[in-house]
């Protein structure tokens, strides 16, 4: 039983032969199961989509008129010879790990995940399995995150100092997930929370679904300058340094990402402040999550795959690297994926 491949890795992405479907495929396929709405996971052009009820509105917002069906967390569904279910991944609102069972053999595709509850999205729920396909974007021991409350306090202090000096606080964050997590976590500050159009659109969708988000306001050419001065403006990273940002007046720029843990990356981004906050698991989170699955086989994908594979092997796992065509939130392109994720919407 142990060697039976429930899932295999093809040109189009992860494929289940027994159910004839793909998970987060990067080429158009007849039937796609989607972990979450980020652009490197949810691509256009598939015949049919299956995602959690909570992920669907953003998927529709981004991909337009698609044939899509929703599924509840934990609900089991038979597809051909496979039983599938979706389980919270704690990455962004609506995100899921996908469990696939064929003939008693259970494989789980993690999608993107983080283990620390962020107060906004459905918290990560480990799923027991025989084989676990895990992302490892931050699969190096240099990546460790401080508790969210600590980082939120740092951001609030920065916002307060800027407001006192009459500066706009311009914070770069991915439009889906990170932006909303920040506005929910940062709490009451010295001024209003304003948003870039890409962030506002996704925020609207999520608010409509019932996620508890604070009031936000879209920045427009008519936005009152006095109101801007003490404001926290949340925008996709690509908007930092753009003509749009220059119109805001005197700004202090901040950027919230796991990559900010490294001084070299922090300096390269050229923001005034880097805040270490990620929607992916850190080193300890990855190790804890993998241990909690009870899996003996682990496939690693996205990130420092060869290093992380070797580490897992040294810990007694049967570990392999799965090549990916696209590296979504890798350090080289921290600004691109989210920009595409939001600006490609209808």
């Amino acid at each position: 039983m142990g060697d039976m491949a429930v899932l295999s890795f093809t040109e189009a992405g992860i494929w289940c032969e027994a159910g004839d479907f793909h998970i987060d495929p990067w080429r158009p396929v007849p039937r796609a199961l989607i972990t979450h709405g980020h652009a490197d996971h949810a691509r256009p052009g598939h015949g049919a989509y299956l995602a959690t009820h909570a992920a669907l509105p953003v998927l529709r917002h981004r991909l337009g008129d698609i044939r899509a069906e929703g599924i509840a967390y934990g609900e089991a569904r038979q597809i051909g010879g496979a039983t599938v279910s979706f389980h919270p991944a704690g990455h962004v609102p609506g995100s899921a790990q996908i469990r696939v069972e064929v003939g008693g053999e259970v494989w789980v595709v993690s999608g993107d995940y983080k283990t620390e509850p962020d107060g906004l999205c459905e918290p990560f729920d480990p799923v027991r399995c025989h084989a676990f396909i895990s992302e490892c974007t931050f699969g190096l021991p240099v990546f460790r995150w401080a508790p969210q409350a600590e980082v939120a306090a740092e951001i609030r202090a920065w916002w307060q100092a800027n407001a006192a000096a009459g500066r706009v606080s311009l914070l770069g964050a991915y439009a889906l997930g990170k932006a909303q997590r920040l506005m929910a976590a940062v709490g009451d500050g010295p001024g209003p929370i304003l948003t870039h159009g890409a962030v506002e659109a996704v925020t609207d969708v999520l608010r409509g679904q019932g996620y508890a988000l604070p009031a936000t306001e879209l920045v427009t050419p008519g936005t009152d300058k006095a109101r801007l001065a003490g404001a926290l403006v949340i925008a996709p990273p690509a908007a930092l340094g753009s003509a749009w940002a220059r119109r805001l007046g005197t700004v202090s720029t901040g950027f919230a990402s796991g990559w900010m843990r490294m001084r070299g990356v922090r300096r390269r981004r050229g923001a005034d402040r880097g805040f270490v906050m990620s929607d992916h698991a850190d080193w300890d989170g990855l190790n804890a999550a993998i241990a909690a699955t009870g899996a003996e086989r682990v496939f690693v994908t996205h990130g420092y795959t060869s290093v992380f594979r070797r580490w897992l092997e040294s810990r007694g796992y049967d570990a392999q690297v799965v090549a990916t065509e696209f590296e979504g939130e890798s350090v080289e392109t921290p600004a691109r994926e989210p920009a595409a994720a939001t600006e490609a919407g209808p």
């Binding site: 990559w259 490294m262 001084r263 070299g264 390269r268 350090v331 080289e332």
Partner: peptide, 9 residues
């Protein structure tokens, strides 16, 4: 890979 500012390129 480079060092310092370009540690990840």
């Amino acid at each position: 890979a480079g060092h310092g500012r370009r540690a990840n390129l």
